[in-house]
């Protein structure tokens, strides 16, 4: 027993040295249980977010207003599902199966990004999701490319390449609508009004209220704090909104200085954390709808999975 304890202390020391030296941790390497648990929670949550995120966008595939728009939206949703696959695979390297992740999701034990619990009510919402929601996600994911766990970092590098296309197509939808008719402009403003605050909430609570941040920063799973990432997103996005004539729905938003490149830096108004926690805990506009949809699809597909499995067994035995 004593020997094991000594070994573990030594292993932890080596692990921390690797982290310090920016050497990636790989699936077969020793890692502290809390590191593994943190990653299992974070990566599976990330995978679920990609997959649940297919629903609000999918709501408009059949109504996409042009062939080009329909193709782009289909391709984007397909990308999101593909990201889900990379991330489930990365999470599986930590010793938990995809079936288990899905079970935890269905039982309400695993979360996904709360932003997908808001509804897509007009076509500009598809633009707003690409521009704001994917824009916020990229800000976070660019930083996660340097995360300390190898498979997660590599998944992030692939994902970031596709996400920047998503953000551009979202902004293009908004831009075209702002150049369009009064009705289109009204829809675009309505979309930013409803999606701005949920997008800011995607970065999570303020650093002072974020329970998982300190270990995650120490182990370099997370590379930048919630508030720092949120600031970066705001500084990047506000000028984009202004350029096409959209009003950011924050009366307290103001320029407080310039960064090294001479670009404006902003201070923003208070985020409604009561709403944030309410939606996280289940009482958002679409929480039940999103989860029910996923559960129904999974249950309706049970006979298909059983059939594929039975056929595989039969053909393997031939």
């Amino acid at each position: 027993m004593k020997k094991a304890a000594i070994d573990e202390a030594q292993l932890l020391k080596e692990f921390e040295e690797k982290i310090e030296a920016e050497v990636k941790i790989e699936p077969r390497d020793w890692m502290p249980d809390a590191y593994r648990e943190h990653l299992i929670r974070q990566i599976s949550q990330h995978a679920h977010s990609e997959v649940i995120g297919m629903q609000p966008e999918g709501n408009w595939i059949t109504r996409a207003p042009s062939l080009r728009a329909k193709k782009i939206l289909l391709a984007k949703i397909q990308d999101e599902g593909g990201h889900g696959l990379y991330l489930y695979s990365a999470a599986e390297t930590l010793g938990v199966s995809r079936d288990q992740f899905l079970q935890w999701l269905h039982e309400g034990k695993a979360k996904y990004s709360s932003v997908f619990n808001y509804p897509t009510l007009n076509w500009a919402d598809i633009g707003a999701i690409g521009w704001l929601v994917d824009g916020a996600a990229i800000t976070n994911q660019v930083s996660l490319q340097r995360t300390s766990y190898g498979p997660y970092s590599r998944a992030m590098i692939r994902i970031c390449k596709e996400e920047s296309f998503h953000q551009r197509q979202g902004y293009e939808i908004m831009w075209k609508m702002m150049e369009g008719t009064k009705d289109q402009q009204r829809m675009a403003q309505d979309a930013i009004d409803r999606w701005w605050w949920p997008a800011l909430m995607m970065f999570g609570p303020h650093d002072t209220d974020s329970p998982h941040t300190s270990n995650a920063m120490k182990w370099k799973i997370k590379r930048e704090s919630n508030d720092r990432l949120r600031e970066k997103f705001i500084n990047k996005t506000v000028p984009q909104a202004e350029l096409i004539g959209l009003k950011v729905p924050d009366d307290q938003l103001k320029v407080v200085g310039k960064d090294q490149m001479g670009e404006p830096m902003y201070a923003h108004g208070d985020i409604d954390w009561d709403e944030f926690w309410r939606v996280v805990k289940g009482d958002g506009p679409c929480n039940k709808q999103r989860l029910d949809h996923h559960i129904n699809a999974h249950e309706n597909g049970k006979w298909v999975r059983e059939c594929a499995y039975a056929y595989q067994i039969k053909t393997n035995n031939q």
Binding site: V51, I61, K70, L74, I77, G84, Y88, H294, A297, R305
Partner: peptide, 10 residues
């Protein structure tokens, strides 16, 4: 396309 997010597995 109507079947998006309704498949038996991803």
């Amino acid at each position: 396309s109507e079947n998006s997010s309704k498949g038996p597995f991803l």
